[in-house]
Design a protein around this nucleic acid. Structure first.
Lengths: 140, 140
DNA sequence: GGTTGCCTTCAAGTGGGTCGAAGGGGGTAC
DNA sequence: GTACCCCCTTCGACCCACTTGAAGGCAACC
């Protein structure tokens, strides 16, 4: 199965710009070209992109992803280094999730706090900002 | 209690550059200056920075944080809009955490996979990359 | 009074995209 | 057969959120 850059972009929910960026930076070394020089992607390339998005999404810099993909190309002898890279990324991601949960609880607190103010201060007249300007205020 | 920019940076684990950046961009409007024009932070400023880091850390753009902090300055009448901003941020953060967990399971899979290869292929000779080059390989 | 050291401002650099301009090829419409 | 449309290409510029560097000010110690 083969795909155009647009199809891949749609499939993975990213922009064609990003895909070209990754390709131009050597992270998709096996992408072919058709007679008109258009990029042609197959399922292996898609798999590669999936990994790239996973690693980028968890904060790995492009340069390290390049290195990781180089290791993959080099074969089994690089498994120990790959193992350590993935372990580090695992830990990093756990940290990131923990940090986000922390931030989330701060935000939750604010939401509750504001909800309380709204409920207490203006029990009948609160209208979401998204609806202000429409004739919904019954107390006016 | 008042603090220098360095003390604040250390307390919050960020660079003095970032603090100046936030200040220069109007997100810390109440920071004072001493006789030598150095920034002087108090506990309220610290609280403000804490919120900035929380919102930035959950992906809110600087411009929106500026807007939010403006709303805070404007007083109670802006609570409904703030409420909606925090609700949106809450949702965004939940999504982000979910995405990270997804990525994490991909990474976990890789870690397990590599661990399996290492165990199966080279039961006695695996040495972490961080230790290679030292005379630890018993089988050589 | 010179050096150390922290501060200042302003400008430039970085990472990771994101976008626009300029141009080419291919298919259909006339 | 050429005009038009659409998608593709490359290359260079732009964007955000810092990050860093250069140049200089003030304070305080030796």
């Amino acid at each position: 199965m083969s795909y155009t850059i647009h199809e891949v972009a749609q499939k993975l929910g990213i922009s064609t710009y990003s895909i070209r960026y990754y390709h131009d930076h050597g992270m998709l070394p096996n992408v072919k070209r058709d007679a008109n020089n258009n990029r042609v992607f197959n399922d292996v390339d898609l798999e590669g992109l999936h990994i790239i998005l996973c690693l980028r999404g968890t904060g790995m810099p492009v340069e390290r992803i390049q290195h990781y993909l180089d290791l993959v190309q080099q074969g089994e002898s690089t498994v120990p280094e790959r193992y350590e890279m993935m372990q580090a990324q695992q830990e990093r991601t756990l940290h990131e999730i923990a940090g986000l949960k922390n931030h989330l609880s701060t935000i939750n607190f604010k939401v509750d706090h504001y909800a309380e103010i709204i409920k207490t201060h203006q029990p009948d007249s609160f209208v979401p900002a998204s609806m202000r300007g429409t004739a919904t205020n019954q107390t006016a």
